[in-house]
């Protein structure tokens, strides 16, 4: 047995196997929750109907900001959950607002006319607001508390459980 070869070989290979084993089962998808715990970036945009909307104006209320588009299937799955939450928590002072991501206003209007909505949907020219929120795909939902701090970011459709628990915590 050549011990030098054995040791050298082990030094090279064993850490590699250990690393792969440790990395196993990890979701390789990139997370972008860097904004959690930070002050929400402000924005002032127009709704699909041309009305101005600014985040500043909602200060003092919990706000749910949802980025979505009509070409995204999970967004459509998420829609009824948002509707239910807006119906139940809107009266308690939670503001809901949606930001259209990489999509055309006409398509969004058509979808919302069919599916309904209890909140303003904003156009985001140049995707600036999406970028300032670090959106890396839709849907993404940001929960902003009364002080304007992002308490939670959910990438992908928000489940009923998470929606409710987060809202309860923010109230």
């Amino acid at each position: 047995m050549n011990w030098k070869v054995l040791i050298a070989g082990s030094v090279v290979t064993l850490p590699l196997v250990a690393l792969l084993a440790a990395g196993f089962g990890r979701d390789p998808k990139l997370r972008s929750n860097a904004l959690e715990g930070r002050e929400a970036p402000t924005f002032a945009l127009n709704t699909l109907d041309g009305q101005p909307f600014s985040l500043e104006a909602s200060k003092g209320h919990p706000v749910v900001v949802n980025f979505w588009s009509t070409w995204c299937q999970p967004c459509k799955i998420e829609h009824p959950i948002l509707m239910g939450a807006a119906e139940n928590y809107g009266p308690l002072g939670v503001k809901f607002v949606a930001v259209l991501y990489q999509d055309e206003a006409a398509k969004a209007r058509a979808f919302l006319n069919k599916a309904g909505s209890y909140w303003p949907t904003l156009e985001d020219p140049g995707g600036r607001t999406a970028i300032s929120y670090g959106v890396a795909g839709v849907p993404e939902t940001f929960f902003i508390d009364k002080n304007g701090v992002i308490v939670r970011k959910v990438a992908g459709p928000v489940s009923q459980e998470i929606m409710v628990s987060t809202l309860e915590q923010m109230l």
Binding site: L6, G9, T13, L16, V17
Partner: peptide
């Protein structure tokens, strides 16, 4: 990997 290293060393 393990078999290769041992085989080589041996």
């Amino acid at each position: 990997l393990v078999v290769s290293v041992i085989l080589l060393a041996a």
